[in-house]
Design a protein around this nucleic acid. Sequence first.
DNA 1: ATTTCCGTCACATTAATATGTGAAGACCGC
DNA 2: GCGGTCTTCACATATTAATGTGACGGAAAT
Lengths: 208, 208
Amino acid sequence: MIKVALVDDNVDLREGLQIVLKEHSDEFECIGAFGDAETALKKIPELKPDVVLMDINLPGISGIECLKQLKPKLPNLDVIMLTVFADDDTVFDSLCAGACGYITKNASPEKILDAIREVRDGGAPMSGRIARMVVTSFKAPGDASAQLTDREKEVLDQLCKGKSYKMVADALNITHDTVRHHIKNIYKKLEVHSVSEAILKTMKKKII
Amino acid sequence: MIKVALVDDNVDLREGLQIVLKEHSDEFECIGAFGDAETALKKIPELKPDVVLMDINLPGISGIECLKQLKPKLPNLDVIMLTVFADDDTVFDSLCAGACGYITKNASPEKILDAIREVRDGGAPMSGRIARMVVTSFKAPGDASAQLTDREKEVLDQLCKGKSYKMVADALNITHDTVRHHIKNIYKKLEVHSVSEAILKTMKKKII
DNA sequence: ATTTCCGTCACATTAATATGTGAAGACCGC
DNA sequence: GCGGTCTTCACATATTAATGTGACGGAAAT
């Protein structure tokens, strides 16, 4: 039996979902439904549900902020965001806050039940387009890297491990001056003027 | 009609999948099956399939490397990794290389067909545990950050934008020496000894 | 009311980085 | 062969960062 709680300011949706869950009362038990984050934050820690379906656009505290505050109290809680919004920031903010799933509200009731089952089974239910967004966020742009020579990439790689010039020199068995020379060229190619900026650009563009 | 190509060194698996695809010849057409990356790299660019099912552990060039070389030639190609391995590095390397999906080989034929449909529909089919891995990779550990004071976080934030001490001082309207003081405390708390390391630790642990 | 922590600033020293110039050997392509 | 690029090293200098010590006011805590 999976204990489920709902957080959504739309009364119709709350009641609709509760009915759907009752129709599958052999699997699910809806132990709470709340219209705002404040109430949810008060009640959910006691109720200890297994899964929370969380809207994002709530009056007052947002669903993401609610999730952030909930997670430390209930680390094993699986939260699925259930919302109309699917823009980059909202999705990634949710995942960073600890959401385990992300379903858009146009999903059918059966899809939502599947998502609850899936998240309890250790999965991460997401609407197709959301999943693609998440996956493609890993893909490297991979443009500026072509400009760097192999040796320069090695040096940059070392810098990106937090090493100093001297340590890089030792690691690559070259002199301090040579390291400096490579770094100077790296700066020119990446259009930066410090190790920090070079590391940042590297991380952001996933050059290495 | 979805044009599919297979890359896997296991003959039985290749033939098995080809049979499954033929059983659904109204939807799918298997236009190629290759036992190694080298052959795949030669043939696939001409065949222009819609979807490639790619094994990772191939003789010679790996499936990930094959994917990397394939993507620039066929940017619209959807590649689904189909493999037994599911460790962190392999999964994330695949996604960074441009994979749109990741299925473990214990998946049923029907699941695999679903994955092909899903990926063509703009989704990102993943086995449950893989999806969870990907999603949780966004979650901030958020432990060490608590130690930092508000001001220290502001300073660190500035450093993470590539600014120098002087620029941070200007931005926060404090003196160079005060910036140094904060940074020294940040170093102590993060257990690092340079701006580079501090930035790296911040990025990795998503402290800010 | 006193301690503790935070944020602010100052002076001083050593280490590391940024920037410039020059040059030699290796390798590749034309 | 010759010109280009890559890698290597050297000398010089100005700027920045790292580390230490010390101090003052305010805010929160007890």
